[in-house]
């Protein structure tokens, strides 16, 4: 188990991180410059936090109170860098052997095979593709059997069309060869969702939320977390009443019902609605949360269409499957029916 709670200031940027990871893969999600990488570097001991505590499986790695600061080389943490950081003057085998030095009965050939690097042992890093480089870097890290494995945007240097494949490949290799804690830094919610069990959202040096990934999507803790996880629609609402299962929300002339979850909300809240949850052309039998939306703009993507809608005076963004295209083509600039499912509206404090 990794328990970290520390602060670190650098210029006018302050990082305040506090979280716990039991097992499995946790993604650290945030835009660039939010302190994701610095969090990893503090845990690895490459940066010294100003204060706080870091414990890994019962061992204190850093404690400002007890004046403990274990050197990086003694932390038993694996770190895969953005650009792989394979030593350029060594072959793949030598890179791995460099890591294995001083360890008992390590079989370098075995890990080369496991990481699907057979035949590339005597290649230099510059002769490898991006994916091969990351696998070699992973092999070099895993041969030391680290208690914690950290991946710092390991796919960001790769071509887009390869990324998807390599992600899954790398993660399946990790899952079948490693059973410690994995921290994965990324700025891509899709990547975070695909690869992790839990997600921690960071913004401007603060961690906003740590939760299982589906919970993060259905119930972000605040507006910033919702925005980082890809939510496009935010509506200031007033809670005007409630029924047995629903809150009644009002914002200008827009009136919505939202499924109750958890504690009673304040009177004024912000409602978040994800663009792809808005349903265009709902079936006739749906009565609640159905509105007339005026199409202000239509943006065609590869597999989906984004609509900017005017709904009772509120501008909403809806994302729909392209199968709606024929029907949308005929109603350009006109009004269509839209439905906001009550179970997908989440309330956040303003």
């Amino acid at each position: 188990m990794l328990e970290a709670s520390f602060t670190k200031s650098l210029g006018d940027f302050t990082l305040k991180s506090s979280f716990k990871v039991e097992k499995g893969v946790m993604a650290i999600l945030g835009s660039s410059g939010c302190g994701k990488s610095m969090t990893l570097k503090c845990i690895a001991g490459l940066f010294k936090p100003d204060g706080g505590e870091i414990h890994l499986n019962g061992r204190t790695l850093f404690s400002s109170d007890k004046r403990v600061n274990v050197l990086p080389r003694n932390r038993n943490i694996g770190y895969v860098f953005q650009n792989s950081a394979l030593f350029p003057h060594m072959t793949v085998r030598k890179n791995i052997a460099y890591a294995a030095k001083g360890l008992r009965s390590q079989n370098i050939s075995e890990i080369i095979e496991k990481m699907q690097l057979s035949g590339l042992e005597n290649h230099y890093p510059y002769q490898l593709s991006g994916g091969q480089q990351q696998r070699a870097a992973l092999a070099r890290t895993l041969i030391r059997e680290p208690e914690l494995l950290m991946l710092d945007e390991p796919f960001s240097a790769l071509d887009n069309h390869l990324k998807h494949l390599l992600e899954l490949e790398l993660l399946s290799i990790i899952r079948s060869n490693y059973n410690g804690i994995v921290l994965l830094v990324t700025h891509n919610i899709e990547e975070a969702y695909r690869l992790s069990d839990n997600i921690m959202v960071m913004d401007k040096g603060l961690n906003l939320q740590v939760s299982p990934k589906n919970e993060l999507i259905s119930k972000p803790a605040n507006v910033a977390a919702a925005r980082i996880t890809g939510c496009k629609n935010f509506v200031d609402v007033e809670i005007t009443g409630e029924t047995e299962n629903y809150h009644i929300l009002r914002s200008g002339s827009l009136c919505m019902q939202a499924v109750k979850t958890g504690a009673a909300p304040d009177r004024r809240m912000i409602a978040g609605i994800r663009a792809h949850h808005i349903i265009l052309f709902p079936p006739e039998d749906i009565r609640e949360n159905v509105y007339n939306g005026t199409v202000l703009e239509k943006i065609e993507g590869v597999f989906s269409v984004t609509l900017i809608l005017d709904c009772c005076g509120k501008t909403l963004r809806a994302e729909a499957d392209k199968s709606h295209m024929p029907r949308l083509a005929s109603c350009d600039g006109s009004t269509i029916k839209v439905h906001i499912p009550p179970q997908y509206i989440f309330l956040m404090e303003g």
Partner: peptide, 27 residues
């Protein structure tokens, strides 16, 4: 010599003098 190489070597269990001789000077 990129700081990443030094950090990688540190996390692979090497001390500073060792890193200087095995990574920095050879590169």
């Amino acid at each position: 010599v990129s700081e990443d190489y030094l950090n990688a070597a540190r996390l692979l269990g090497r001390g500073e003098l060792n890193i200087f001789c095995t990574i920095v000077v050879p590169i």
